[in-house]
Design a protein around this nucleic acid. Structure first.
Lengths: 314, 314
DNA sequence: TGAGGGCATAAGCTGAGGTTATGAGCAGCT
DNA sequence: AGCTGCTCATAACCTCAGCTTATGCCCTCA
């Protein structure tokens, strides 16, 4: 019926502004494309994904029709990606990798009890680093069930002390009392501006005083990044806007609202694509802090905890 | 039938090793979650995505059931994400952003003719940078149809000269004859190793001679990165393995096969997550090259080309 | 020339996700 | 108090994308 009459309701509201779902093949199709690229045959790819060959064939075909692009060169001896297909597959790989991180993260959040490895981590680490570590861990030790609790540093420390967590990750300035620790990474805060901002072209480094006197886009008081910033400035920062999520801060900065202070982990992509430009800072401004793994004092972690620790760049 | 008897065929081959599609909500659900986070209400999110409120409600619910996580706090006055939901939404955002890049890229590949802006770009740029630029462009000038042709530098130059492309992006060492150009970014090649590799802990910078005498994981002869490397080494490089895609090179390096040479654009994520470690190089080794926009000599680009150029960090 | 791997087509089934219609909780105004 | 307006949930129904099996054709290689 929707096809008959006059295509009312749904069609009058055209597929909505930013609805990617209808323009991007679903994850299964993207995985299939990658499998074809890797294995050189639709049939083998189908087998790997546990579907029948005709299903794979039709799915690839419909993806090609959908995108309006020839992705696969079929021959009686197998299938290879076209040049276009290679490029599309590279873009697809990014989506699939993000999906893998999503899966690793959400699965760890769910597996609360009965896991062999219980991890507690602060937000920044949980958000940006842990999924990758978990993927690496599951490749090295398949089947290790990991649970994740995300919270602030005090909460992480408490869980590790009480034995509710086997391993913790914190981004505080100091090591929590009574816990052993190892630095696993550094969190370098960047001052970033949109490419159009005056600071983007500036040669002379920005000094601490300037930073302290310039209204900045910041996370709310009490957040980890805010603490590090104020510590480095030796006083309070002047907020232009206070936002409650790193994402909101990035969005405001990209929009040109002003200079923002964020972890390099959070803006790696934006910086690489030049949507944001890091501002040179005076050597006196120390916006670096350690990201540390922590565990109960005395004995080094063993078993899966040790394994995970070794992945995080000892 | 498949449910009766003994759960044969499909169930014996358990959902296949790395099939994410069944474990990760589809793009529509992720977009919906982000919309709920942004708008604070299931109903409003539904409207934005052009679906009914019950559809949104049930979809979020089934996503929560699927993940085994409570994502949304529903109240008679609206819905907000739970803490867990925030974290999950952050992971979801990465997937959606990758999907947006996919969409922007594939759409440009398709819109061959009749576009207002025809771009030709070398692979590295097309793969890593252009999708982001296209997204930014479409935000600033909605509705600008862009077409993309990806090829090597000579091909890009030819298209720009012949008028088949309005704007080109090349990564060659020199500016093609008869074209004006502007540097839009730099492509810094990195030597990367897996965290376990001896070079990962090494303090002393690696010299050009060392690099030249060490077997490296490389792209095939003739590739852009290979050219730059050999230019910098003043001779030929010694390949440990030659691979035909940047992705394959990365995979081999992550697996610990040896040192690899790749663009920083290609490994930003791996480096951030410490799956790969960049090796310090002697100051004498120049592995940087310019990424340039090029256009027909004489007149600066106007219209959409000018707009795109201005996005690429003037 | 027959065997085997690779892809395409055909016909039929299932379920996820969509719709409309309706109910019920809570806030705030009149 | 009660009305209005917003929220979300439930119910019954529909559609189509994507899966399956069965089959055929094409090409290569022994």
């Amino acid at each position: 019926m929707s096809s008959s009459s006059s295509g009312d309701r749904h069609d009058t509201t055209p597929p909505a502004a930013g609805v990617l779902a209808h323009r991007v093949p679903d994850l299964g199709a993207l995985e299939l494309l990658l499998a074809v690229a890797r294995l050189g045959s639709l049939g083998r790819a189908a087998r790997e994904l546990g579907i029948s060959q005709p299903a794979a064939s039709s799915r690839v075909r419909s993806m090609e029709r959908h995108l309006g692009l020839a992705l696969v060169d079929r021959s009686p001896r197998g299938s290879r990606l076209t040049d276009t297909g290679q490029l599309v597959a590279d873009w697809a790989r990014k989506v699939v990798e993000a999906a893998a991180a999503f899966e690793a993260g959400t699965r760890a959040l769910k597996d609360r009890r009965d896991s062999r490895l219980r991890v507690a981590a602060s937000m920044t680490i949980a958000e940006y680093l842990l999924p990758g570590w978990l993927i690496a861990l599951s490749e090295r030790r398949p089947g290790t069930a990991v649970s994740l609790h995300a919270g602030n540093s005090a909460e992480v420390a408490r869980r590790v002390r009480s034995g509710e967590a086997d391993l913790g990750f914190v981004e505080g300035l100091s090591v929590p009392e009574g816990l052993d620790s190892a630095v696993v990474a550094h969190d370098l805060l960047l001052v970033v501006v949109a490419p159009g901002h005056p600071w983007a072209r500036r040669r002379r480094p920005v000094t601490g005083e300037e930073l302290a006197s310039t209204p900045l886009i910041l996370r709310e008081e009490g957040s980890g990044t805010r603490q590090v910033l104020e510590e480095a400035l030796g006083g309070v920062a002047r907020p232009l806007i206070e936002l409650s999520s790193t994402t909101a801060v990035k969005t405001a900065a990209v929009g040109g609202a002003g200079p923002a202070v964020v972890s390099e982990l959070a803006v790696a992509e934006e910086v690489a694509a030049r949507r944001l430009v890091p501002v040179g800072l005076d050597a006196g401004v120390r916006l670096r802090r350690d990201l540390r793994a922590v565990w109960p004092g005395g004995h080094r972690p063993v078993g899966p905890a040790r394994e995970l620790l070794s992945l995080t760049r000892v």
